[in-house]
Amino acid sequence: MPYALIVEQLLNGVQFGVMLFLMAAGLTLVFGIMNMINLAHGALYMAGAFLAAALVHVTGNFFLAVIIAVPATGVLGALMEFVVLRRFYVRTHLDQVLVTFGLILVLNEITRLIWGPVPVPLPLPAILAGSIEVFPGVSYPTFRLTILAVGAVVAVALYLVVVHTRAGMWVRAGASNRTMASSLGVNVDFVFSMVFAVGAALAGLAGIMAGPIFAVQVGMGDPILILAFVVTVIGGIGSIRGAFIAALMIGIVDTFGRVLLPPALGSMVIFILMAMILAWRPQGLFPLQG
């Protein structure tokens, strides 16, 4: 394989990886703290993309649209948590699966009611539309580089917040032992609502960044949701570090798998990787202690 192609695919893989990380981060924290499985996380990814597309249409400014759409998705997530999901923390996983499955149907259909079944365009601003020569002889789309940069910044910021701040300590305490953290004075319910909102906003951000590359359409969140689950399982549920490493691994392996292997095998390679890791370490690579 020529050098330019390797570099380009590597960048594609890392870029896909950071996007997966944004999805998986919310999922893994929500799961880590509340032991809650949320299939409707993909709907938030879709919501982010649709909100941004609508806002670009209204304001005509991509950056303004992103700045509004990301917190708006966070608010939507908080609303979802407050109205429905909050009642399901003490229920079984089965009930959580069912209710979030119902939520997916409802949210997909509401989106279809508002925007219709046809994909909605999410145009890029001129400044991000071109491509840049990253290495001699290798040019790469500016927007994908931007995704990479934004994803990396968010990942580092999230890591610093979770590992080095008091709020992050509450999150980790809640994740490793909820009852103990609660009896030591951490308002775990409040922390969880915040984490849920932040997770929703990150999913929305991932959706917005995916919008111009893939299509903004109903159900766009489902495939990425399942990949985010794979990332969460490999990384170890509740672990930010695990999610980051697993996301990059999945992004790179998936990209190269599709290029190098025959299609039937290439589409399966990340799941085979997951199977091998689960066979070796059933709790994922970086399981939470406690």
Partner: peptide
């Protein structure tokens, strides 16, 4: 638990 759900979904 949840690992099982996610793993079966992935498969």
């Amino acid at each position: 638990g949840a690992y099982f759900i996610m793993a079966t979904l992935a498969f």
